[in-house]
């Protein structure tokens, strides 16, 4: 029996990936199981899903604690979640990242493979939905499942054009991952789980059953949920405050410049106004700056949509 754990973010299709993999295993004549970790999943929040594949009937019904394979749909999860916890000796970790395996922040002793699934998905599917691409990569890297079965399973779930594009993306990833590679690294022992991640601010003691202090959710940096980030054009900005008012995560802040910095900003703005590049409303308030707090912005795009001068552009986050 082989066990697979998929780490993703809510909305990335981790649970769907686990199910597609299980269905593909049926197609290959295997027994399989797929199920999610039950929690309060929100779009962008870390989530986990599991798949078991076996030639024999699977009696086990527990969560997967010691996976043979781990799929990481979003490399930013590596710092937030203990993705390699319990990995079996000889286990493989597949990470969606542009970086090389040595640079994604996973223990160097572990056989890690990276693939730019976001790039492939954006190029072929046109959306950063990476689950099917990563299944292709999984088939290529592990040989546990045939790409034909992955394709069948994807097409059954997403008939028509959408399914075909997903199959193309999966096949591209399969080809990339099944290419010959250097000898594999091996870990002799099971990878131990790290101690529970820090959820409380520095110096704060966790008292069981008690929420110690108000406002402590600030210790959770939700900024790594986002795919896109807003870029502000502070020269054109008329400082109406709509973006501040409409940020569900209070991630946009107003800073007022003082002294020399304020004078400098005003002077620059007046020059721009003279040349007709910016409006008077913008020039008058040049000393006020709006700044994004990247630690919390989830990239929803409301600010860009509400900006009356269209001075906010959503840009793809580089991960």
């Amino acid at each position: 029996m082989k066990e697979v754990r998929i780490h993703g973010r809510g909305g990335q299709g981790s649970v769907t990936a686990a199910e597609l993999l299980a269905i593909a295993a049926f197609e290959d004549g295997k027994y399989s199981q797929a199920f999610p970790f039950f929690g309060v999943e929100r779009r962008g929040a870390p989530v986990t899903a599991f798949t078991r594949l076996s030639d024999k009937k699977i009696r086990l019904r527990s969560q997967i604690y010691e996976p043979d394979y781990v799929i990481v749909q979003d490399a930013t999860l590596i710092t937030a979640v203990d993705v390699t916890a319990g990995l079996k000796p000889g286990g493989i970790v597949i990470v969606n990242s542009e970086k090389s395996a040595d640079n994604v922040g996973i223990d160097q002793r572990i056989d890690t493979r990276t693939i730019d699934a976001t790039g492939i998905a954006l190029e072929i599917i046109g959306r950063p939905i990476v689950n099917t691409t990563l299944l292709g990569a999984f088939a290529g890297a592990t040989g546990e499942i045939s790409i034909e079965s992955i394709n069948k399973s994807v097409l059954a779930r997403f008939p028509g054009k959408v399914g075909e594009l997903n199959v193309q993306a999966a096949e591209k990833a399969y080809a990339l991952m099944s290419a010959p590679r250097e000898p594999q690294k091996h870990v002799k022992q099971r990878i131990r789980a790290k101690r529970e991640s820090k959820v409380q601010p520095e110096g704060e003691k966790i008292i069981k059953g008690v929420i110690g202090r108000p406002g402590t959710s600030e210790a959770t940096k939700t900024g790594d949920w986002r795919v896109f980030y807003p870029e502000f054009d502070m020269e054109q900005c008329i400082r109406c405050g709509k973006c501040l008012e409409n940020c569900p995560d209070a991630a946009i802040r107003e800073h007022v410049l003082h002294g020399k910095k304020a004078e400098e900003a005003k002077r620059r703005a007046e020059e721009l106004e003279k040349t007709g590049k910016i409006k008077k409303a913008a020039a008058k308030k040049a000393h006020i700056q709006y700044q994004l707090n990247p630690e919390y912005c989830k990239g929803c795009g409301i600010c860009a949509n509400e900006c009356p001068i269209k001075g906010i552009q959503m840009k793809l986050e580089e991960k």
């Binding site: 309060v40 600030e218 959770t220 949920w225 986002r226 501040l244 569900p248 995560d249 989830k298 929803c300």
Partner: peptide, 30 residues
């Protein structure tokens, strides 16, 4: 959680909550 020279008062519903990106109810509570 001091108010670092910003003109906006302390958020009574602070960042880091787990609502989905673009959540209407979270905006409502703020």
């Amino acid at each position: 959680m001091e108010n670092r020279g910003e003109t906006r008062p302390l958020d009574l519903f602070s960042s880091g909550h787990r609502a989905c990106a673009g959540c209407g109810p979270a905006l409502t509570i703020q």
